[in-house]
């Protein structure tokens, strides 16, 4: 519990915007993954130009985080994957431009104090996301499918 309190304090001290706070929440070091509501909210905000850059800036930071924070990396991949499928039209070009960041995570390793390799989840996620981004047809299909199933988005 205290951890999330500290995070809230950090949010205030570092002066993060509400979007950035959302993203920090979604990619935190807690053991459970981000909720769908949270992911939806972030995807919704990616339509706004200012918060789009805020989101991507923070994601970039999280994706390049230290091995100790492997949860940051894993969850950032989850968020990015969601954005690529359901986010604004800017998300896909951004991800393609920065593909090398994701690609190089395919060999991510982190051993915790017990000597257990926690990198597996990051490697699998990075591999899947890379495959998706390289497959334009599937990506188009995924995106149009999501669009049909959801209420029309505001611009």
């Amino acid at each position: 519990m205290s951890k999330s309190l500290i995070r809230k304090a950090k949010n205030v001290v570092n002066g993060y915007s509400s979007t950035q706070v959302l993203l920090r929440e979604a990619t935190s070091n807690d053991s459970d993954g981000p909720s769908v509501e949270l992911l939806d909210e972030i995807a919704e905000r990616s339509w706004d130009n200012v918060s789009f850059f805020e989101v991507m800036d923070m994601l970039d930071k999280r994706l390049n985080d230290k091995g100790k924070n492997w949860r940051h990396v894993a969850k950032s991949l989850t968020v990015l994957d969601y954005l690529v499928r359901c986010g604004s039209d800017h998300c896909v070009p951004w991800a393609k431009e920065n593909l090398y960041i994701i690609k190089t995570l395919r060999e991510f390793i982190h051993e915790d104090e017990m000597g257990v390799d926690q990198g597996q989840i990051v490697r699998v996620k990075a591999r899947e996301l890379t495959a998706l981004l390289l497959d334009d047809e599937r990506l188009q299909e995924e995106r149009s499918l999501r669009r049909q199933n959801r209420r029309p988005r505001r611009r």
């Binding site: 390049n64 230290k66 091995g67 090398y100 960041i101 190089t104 995570l105 060999e107 991510f108």
Partner: peptide, 13 residues
């Protein structure tokens, strides 16, 4: 260490 090699790779991009 992968993180150092990765840092080099990301640097070149």
């Amino acid at each position: 260490k992968r993180k150092h090699v990765r840092a080099c790779i990301v640097y070149t991009w």
